[in-house]
Design a binder for these strands. Structure first.
Lengths: 207, 207
DNA sequence: GTCTATACCCCGATAGAC
DNA sequence: GTCTATCGGGGTATAGAC
């Protein structure tokens, strides 16, 4: 049944490389990827354990709160990965408008190369759990807030007033979120590219 | 167990009123609402049957293709409801920029009054089924395309060139989609209101 | 910390009486 | 068309040996 057997990690604690990843990390990473692609309800703990090459016992050892606690950790992990990508895009150009365009290009490439499966790491889970799993919803809200701050800082650096930057950053994250959803459903980069063009145009009206 | 019993409809075929709604319609409506709030994987056929005051046998009688076929019908139903709301908003003002603002206000009010549960009728299901249920994904894509056409027509009526209108309409729908998701997660109207302001500003740069 | 086995429940789907 | 009963499988979660 299993194509890969659970592994006994004797190298725990060495950390740092790619080879020696602790069991807990493997579980969180597998959960994050599955939540991104299948959402919360569509992802089973058994599947997470299988993908992480861990056993069910290990999952409940590290996450005694069960699926919800694991989902919160996975969302936080996805938040970091997405933040890294945003930082990379925003650093690509001094001009905030051009930097946002760079972000949309990064997202579009990642999406196309994953055959349109790797979109926003929190969107699917967030929509499924709105009003039904407060802990998870809070983690999703914090992720969105964090990403917004990254964009807001970039806009401030580009010379925009702080209030303007904050509001514009919120709209930018919303737009990226919606454009990525649309791109996935339509299997096309166009929505993300169009979002980039229009966001740049909008930002320039404030410069 | 059941608080409401299945009903024997002897008035099938009269149609038109609110009182005599056929079994099939009740099933589709219940499915549409549940998919909107809980997504595809989070919604069970048994729950749909219960909410629709129908039996499992009736569900499979009308939808022999099972859950997927029912989901396609439910998505198409949600598409119509959302289109009606868009049409109402777009008709509220001759100026396309102001009309889009009216749409965001309508969405914000609906969202707040439903305690942030009634967002886009296709978003959750779409994200869960990308690359995994082609029929459902196609229905979601068609819904987005239909909504985009409604906005595009309004922009054309407002005097924009057809190419510009189409691209701008796509960006508008993406933005509304993302802003509604964000508003639900943050439990705030602000993302939708900000989206409205910025979309109006963007549209005016083309007028 | 890791692993197996299992309890208990609900899932989608079907069969067949009415 | 409507209804009940049920099948086979998978879901989350737990117990307890190692």
């Amino acid at each position: 049944m299993h194509t890969t057997k659970p592994r006994h990690d004797t190298t725990e604690g060495t950390e740092g490389g790619d080879a020696a990843v602790g069991t807990r990390d493997r579980i969180v990473r597998a959960a994050a990827r599955l939540l991104q692609r299948q959402g919360y309800e569509g992802t089973g703990i058994k599947q997470i354990a299988r993908d992480a090459e861990a056993t069910l016992g290990s999952v409940y050892h590290f996450f005694p709160g069960g699926k919800q606690e694991l989902a919160v950790a996975a969302i936080r992990h996805g938040e970091q990965e997405f933040a890294d990508m945003l930082r990379a895009g925003l650093a690509a150009d001094d001009d905030p408008a051009q930097a946002v365009v760079a972000c949309t290009l990064l997202l579009a490439t990642t999406l196309r190369e994953s055959d349109w499966t790797d979109g926003c790491p929190v969107a699917a889970t967030a929509l499924e759990t709105v009003g039904r799993a407060p802990d998870i919803q809070r983690a999703c809200a914090e992720a969105i807030g964090h990403w917004t701050d990254l964009v807001s800082d970039k806009l401030c650096d580009g010379g925009l007033a702080e209030d303007t930057a904050k509001e514009l950053a919120g709209a930018t994250i919303s737009t990226l979120e919606g454009a990525e959803l649309t791109a996935q459903v339509l299997r096309s980069e166009e929505p993300l590219l169009a979002a980039g063009r229009h966001l740049a145009r909008l930002i320039r009206t404030y410069q």
